[in-house]
Nucleic acid binder design. Structure first.
Lengths: 143, 143
DNA sequence: GGTTGACTTCGAGCCGACTCGAGCTCATAC
DNA sequence: GTATGAGCTCGAGTCGGCTCGAAGTCAACC
């Protein structure tokens, strides 16, 4: 529980550190992705903390893996509500994990198809027999 | 080179066999994803061949792995143009393969984050110490 | 010859997640 | 004191890939 420095980060700082644009950060606030309301300075500008940067980095990973904003919002809501909501938070994470795993599996299947085609083209091109790859050839399984 | 049966498949048949809706199949034709123009019967209805089903299954994999429609169209165009376009076809496939691999890597990174969180929640819930997971705990790295 | 069901075209609508821009307010640097 | 630059709000636009529905055609069965 370090009561250490609380560096006050501007939206620009956070943008740099998270890779999310300023626009996106405002949009995320509006969408309720933050656990606590984002605080403001005297001029009404957003002031972020290191904690929030950390959370945003997590959000970025969740987004990159396809978690919809409503799910992230829900998770953030639960964290805000505090103790007693851990089971549902866990459930959200587990469900998402399954979806991601399924997606990885799907991508691997696609990679198999792609790899086959690449191998075929490379072989034919190396042999100079690319023409045989043409439409009605015996081994021309789907171009 | 089997000159065998040419089963004339309706859009409904193809829909069933590819998992693509009729709407999507028409849309794909319109978008130029087919190598050859789709033929029609006397009443103007689309008639598909086994070859086309095969190609659509490939398309489905490419789409599932995120290849944009314009890229698929380009590939189909090249196949239609025939010999001499193999290098570019190969290039398209290789490029896409790299993107898919990158995506898989990204998903794995996300999975690491998710797995960590899941493990943490499971541990605390099992121990009944979930409360310690609360906000300002020492080990509470980003909720 | 009427009903059914599968097909046709066309254009519009939808979805999620940004992305952008106009017009404004501030604070700091010179 | 004014120019610069970063921030603000709000509403609208974009993008890709479907998705839907209305209105019509056609063949096959009873």
């Amino acid at each position: 529980m370090t009561t250490a420095e609380r560096p006050r980060l501007s939206i620009g700082d956070v943008s740099e550190r998270t890779g999310l644009t300023r626009h996106t950060l405002r949009f995320y606030e509006q969408e309720g992705l933050f656990v606590e309301p984002v605080s403001r300075d005297s001029a009404g500008r957003r002031v972020f903390t290191e904690q929030e940067v950390g959370w945003l980095l997590v959000c970025a990973r969740l987004r990159a893996s396809g978690m919809p904003l409503p799910d992230i919002r829900r998770y953030a809501d639960l964290v805000r509500q505090g103790p007693g909501t851990e089971h549902e938070r866990l459930a959200i994470l587990q469900e998402h994990r399954e979806r991601v795993r399924a997606q990885v599996a799907e991508l691997h299947e696609a990679l198999e198809v792609i790899d086959d085609k690449v191998a075929l083209y490379e072989k034919r091109l190396a042999e100079g027999t690319a023409d045989e790859l043409w439409r009605n050839g015996p081994e021309c399984d789907n171009l």
